[in-house]
Simulated scan of single mutants.
Amino acid sequence: MLNTENSLPVWIFFSNVDAITVNNSASQLLAWSGQSFGRLFGSTQNLLNVLLDSNHRMAKEHVIELIGLLGACVASNPYPHPAARELFTDCIMILSRNLAGLPEE
């Protein structure tokens, strides 16, 4: 995807372990949120598929979009299960670390 300046996208690369962890945690969040997440489910699932199918890389703007969608997923249920908060935290920590270019600990 090109930005308005017509430059190439900035790619964020994920390790195999990080990509699988984000996918598994996010998939559990999506299953937990169910119908309350509604039409955003498909968009989130598409981004997760890109993460797994494209050598574990995503365009920077898609990483930001995924963070926002997962936040909306958790916020879609006014009574989140405690496990949902852990799943969300796992996803956000991995996505944010990679977005910021921080080394793995």
Rank of each mutant, 00 (worst) to 15 (best):
M93E: 07
V10E: 05
N46E: 03
P9V: 04
N3C: 11
N77Y: 06
A31W: 02
N23C: 04
A84L: 02
N6Y: 04
I64Q: 12
A83W: 10
E65C: 13
L40W: 09
L66E: 06
F88L: 15
A31Y: 02
N23T: 14
N3K: 15
M93T: 13
S15Y: 00
N46L: 05
S25I: 00
T89P: 00
E5I: 13
V17N: 06
L87R: 14
L95I: 09
L48I: 04
E5K: 15
P103L: 14
S33M: 02
L52G: 01
G71R: 14
F14K: 10
P82I: 12
N55K: 15
L95N: 01
D53G: 15
F41H: 10
P78F: 08
F37G: 02
F37L: 12
V22P: 07
N6R: 10
L47W: 07
L66C: 08
A84Q: 05
D18R: 04
E61K: 08
N6I: 02
C73T: 10
D53T: 14
G68T: 12
A19W: 04
E65L: 15
L8Q: 11
V17I: 12
Q28L: 09
L69H: 14
R39D: 04
P80S: 12
M58F: 13
T89F: 10
F88D: 10
N46W: 03
Q35F: 05
I64K: 12
L66Y: 07
M58T: 10
L87W: 14
L70P: 14
L29C: 10
C91V: 04
L66H: 06
D90E: 08
P9S: 09
W32P: 00
L66A: 11
P78S: 15
S7V: 13
L40F: 04
G68K: 12
M93Q: 07
E86F: 08
T44Y: 01
A26S: 09
V10P: 01
A31G: 00
S7G: 09
N24F: 00
K60M: 12
R97V: 07
W32H: 03
L52E: 01
Y79D: 01
H81R: 13
I92Q: 12
G38W: 01
V17C: 05
M93A: 07
N24V: 02
I20N: 09
P82S: 11
D53S: 15
N77H: 10
H56D: 08
K60L: 13
F13W: 07
S27G: 15
D18P: 01
Q28K: 14
